[in-house]
Amino acid sequence: MTDVVIGAQSEVVFHFSIKLSDGSAADSSKVHNKPAKLVMGDGSLTANFEKCLLGLKAGENKSFELAPEDAFGQPNPDNIYHLDRSKFGVDAPAQVGAIIAFTQQDGTELPGLIREVAGDSVTVDFNHPLAGQHLTFDVEIISVAN
């Protein structure tokens, strides 16, 4: 039996670690030992991220760098909102640096980072915290199925 390599529609289970350009760790699936799972081509990852996985097989490791456009995108100014301070309460105070989950109309939660508090105006950034960053991904392929 030959080892299955990652192809265009493979189901892949893998661990990943993300490092910032200064080498510091940003995220890792190994922290909680919960590997990521995806179906290639399902749109959950960028095309260039998927290209970096093509041809790998279970047990292999790879490290690659991605520009912001191929990782979490560039920050979008349309994702920055100015909210009234009255929208915040004691359980979720408006403090710079705090990350607060906001419930959207469809019931899903979206995390926002409080960037600024000025008088009654609170600036909340809903961009992904890693948007705009050049990142290094280390992946360890656990299983591949076609």
Rank of each mutant, 00 (worst) to 15 (best):
G73Y: 09
F137Q: 04
T136E: 13
R85F: 13
G7I: 06
T123L: 09
A8P: 02
K51P: 03
N79T: 10
P111Q: 07
I114W: 11
S28I: 08
I100C: 06
E60W: 03
P77G: 04
D91S: 13
E60V: 03
D125M: 04
K34G: 12
I114M: 11
H128A: 02
S21Y: 08
Q133A: 13
K19N: 14
H82F: 15
V90P: 09
L54P: 00
G119N: 10
A26M: 10
N48D: 14
F16S: 14
P35C: 08
S86F: 12
D22Y: 05
C52P: 00
S143L: 08
D120V: 13
K62Y: 01
S143N: 12
G107V: 06
G132H: 01
A145Q: 13
N76V: 06
G41T: 05
S29D: 13
A94I: 15
L56C: 02
S86A: 14
S17I: 15
R85D: 14
D84N: 14
D22H: 03
G55A: 01
Q133I: 14
P77H: 04
H128K: 04
G112K: 08
F64P: 00
D78F: 10
S21Q: 09
K37N: 07
A131E: 01
F126V: 05
A131G: 02
H134R: 12
T103M: 07
V139K: 00
N33W: 14
F64W: 02
E116C: 10
Q104T: 14
G97V: 08
A47T: 12
F64H: 02
A145K: 13
K51Q: 07
F137A: 02
F49V: 11
L110N: 11
I6N: 00
V31F: 09
T123S: 08
D27S: 14
F137Y: 15
V12W: 00
S63Q: 06
D91H: 12
E65K: 06
H128W: 06
Q104H: 07
R85W: 10
D84A: 10
